[in-house]
Design a protein around this nucleic acid. Sequence first.
DNA 1: ACCTGAACACCGTTCAAGT
DNA 2: ACCTGAACACCGTTCAAGT
Lengths: 230, 230
Amino acid sequence: MAFVLPQPPRKGRARPEPGTRLSRESIVDAALAIVDAGGLDALSMRSVAQALRTGPASLYAHVADKDELLALLIERVAGGHDLPDPDPEHWQEQLKGMVRSLHHGLLAHRDLARAALGTIPLGEGALRFRDRMIAVMRAGRLPDRVVAYGCDLLPLYAVATACEQAAHADEEGARFVEAVRAYVAALPGDRFPHLLAVGAPALGGAEDGERFEFGLDVLVSGLAAYGPRT
Amino acid sequence: MAFVLPQPPRKGRARPEPGTRLSRESIVDAALAIVDAGGLDALSMRSVAQALRTGPASLYAHVADKDELLALLIERVAGGHDLPDPDPEHWQEQLKGMVRSLHHGLLAHRDLARAALGTIPLGEGALRFRDRMIAVMRAGRLPDRVVAYGCDLLPLYAVATACEQAAHADEEGARFVEAVRAYVAALPGDRFPHLLAVGAPALGGAEDGERFEFGLDVLVSGLAAYGPRT
DNA sequence: ACCTGAACACCGTTCAAGT
DNA sequence: ACCTGAACACCGTTCAAGT
């Protein structure tokens, strides 16, 4: 895990010559396409370079290292969300909408969320998103301390659940989840009575949507409990 | 990300001959020591082999692949927690205690939590932990559906926060967090008014303990809201 | 300034061969 | 059954050299 502060935006000509195919943007484009196609494990400096028909060394003229490239990918998906106008009447639903948007935005790129986990995105888009999330919570008249923690907690939830769901989303993951179900069902009932009693949903996997919404509800109503009583 | 079902425990001699240094256990020991010393990135089949004074190929007689080794590491730390006797009077505090135990147990091994994220640990110890966590929530008379989701949600929180904190725990991470603080403080106030108003704690980093406890409180009281009113 | 080939120091895993 | 050396197909990154 390494860390990258955003680089100040480059001056740059408005448009690269048609012959030139390398730029920060084109590199990020290519990288995202690779992640979309094969997941984060398929992403390497070499695979990106190959997609751009160069050698890996060429990338280093535009990008400091792989960590910076990952940060740029996260930044790309952290921007591009619709941001609600804070409405004191509907702040909880608005807040949920933002968390959903982040979550699904990540899931749209396979297991890219894994690269977002220890990260603190600081680009334009990510900061705007965060600023707005805070605004929505303030519209709900939550105390500053709660807002400050909440705007970490909610994205953490969005990212962590995206990681988990992505891990079980591909074919191999689905097979594993199925095997888990069978394994648990065959467990000796006298040794794990509560696990068996609560049943299948007690061990990860399907019903991801429902599970995600449940956690989201717990979190947002838990935060709301710190606000003025309605 | 790959998945590993637990192997049935080996018969195994009680004790390897003194000359023999390879076994599942000794491999896990060595791997854990490497993670403790240098973090997850320092762990490779080769580094483990070197610590055991063999070549990497020798490990494959005892461990299917690196993913299985990681699963064994997770299993090792998922076991070895003190489990409370479910007490209907104190179930919320007991639940918190279990989440704290998991969280700190992971953090004791640097960024090992990163390997636990998409994972569903299925070993003896992990299942006992999960069974007990369910028992505690049932002692609180939460509905089955809430229990089933809750016993995923709470470990997810323990693991995700451990990932995050570990990422900022080493020297490089601390430096980065410091840089973030400065960067945010210098942000144009008219563009990110809410972010600036809420201030420093609104962007990751220090006060990790307080932050963790806050989220834990939100989650557990959020779950408790589904139970009988007290 | 940007791009390149070649090289360095690593990976995980396999496989034929040894004991 | 367990262990080994050597090899295969990869990594990220650097660096001198080209344009």
